[in-house]
Amino acid sequence: MVELDKQETLSLLFANQMLTVIASYTKLLESNMPAPQYYMLQTLASEEKMTVSQFANLLNVSLPAVTNLSGKLVRKGFVERVVSEADRRQVFLKITDAGRDFEKRMVEKYKELTSGLWDGFSEAELDLLIASYRKMSAHLQTKI
């Protein structure tokens, strides 16, 4: 058996953790709400409104892909398209009240999933984990 160094071990543990969280979280999502659509909805819940181009850059996908995803959210009544008053060629995606309600329900389900996850950790361990995750996230952002 090949012994891994600490960085390789952490990378494998992180990958396994991500897969476990994604699999668990996907079970929470309703069957008619795939993860990419939920990500768009979650983003709009915090950003209020964004253009299709902004989403394409954020998700690193094509404009037609975002148009397809957003069209599904519009049909569900979770997102609306709003034409810019300043430039009629620019269209924003904006979360609706129904979309905001759905997103809030999903956040509650996520809280249920993660309830008790950090029990048994000391304050010092939690502080170290928070600092470590922030550092790791910042590093990952430079790779995007």
Score class of each variant (00 low, 15 high):
Ser46Ala: 14
Thr114Ile: 10
Ile22Leu: 12
Gln37Pro: 06
Thr96Asp: 02
Lys143Gln: 15
Ala138Pro: 05
Asp127Cys: 01
Lys27Trp: 00
Thr67Leu: 09
Pro64Val: 06
Ala86Pro: 04
Leu59Arg: 13
Met136Gln: 09
Leu41Met: 03
Arg88Lys: 13
Asp119Ala: 03
Glu8Ile: 06
Met106His: 02
Arg100His: 06
Asn68Ile: 00
Ser31Asp: 15
Thr51Arg: 07
Thr67Lys: 13
Leu69Ile: 07
Met33Arg: 06
Ser132Asn: 07
Met40His: 03
Glu108Asn: 10
Pro34Ser: 01
Val91Trp: 09
Gln90Cys: 08
Arg88Asp: 09
Glu3Tyr: 11
Asn68Thr: 02
Gln54Thr: 07
Glu108Arg: 14
Asn60Lys: 14
Leu58Cys: 07
Ile130Tyr: 07
Glu3Asp: 08
Leu117Cys: 03
Phe92Thr: 00
Leu128Gly: 00
Tyr110Met: 08
Leu129Thr: 11
Pro64Cys: 05
Glu48Thr: 13
Ser46Asn: 11
Asp127Ile: 00
Asp87Phe: 05
Met106Glu: 02
Leu113Asn: 01
Trp118Glu: 08
Thr67Met: 09
Ser62Pro: 01
Ile22Arg: 03
Arg81Tyr: 10
Met136Ile: 09
Phe78Asn: 00
Glu80Asp: 03
Asn68Pro: 00
Leu12Tyr: 15
Val82Phe: 04
Ile144Asp: 02
Pro34Asn: 02
Leu13Lys: 15
Lys27Cys: 00
Ala35Leu: 14
Asp101Trp: 03
Val82Ala: 04
Gly77Tyr: 10
Phe121Thr: 03
Tyr39Cys: 08
Pro36Ala: 12
Ile95Gly: 01
Arg100Ser: 09
Ser132Gln: 12
Asp101Thr: 13
Phe14Trp: 10
Lys72Pro: 01
Ala131His: 11
Met18Phe: 13
Gly77Glu: 11
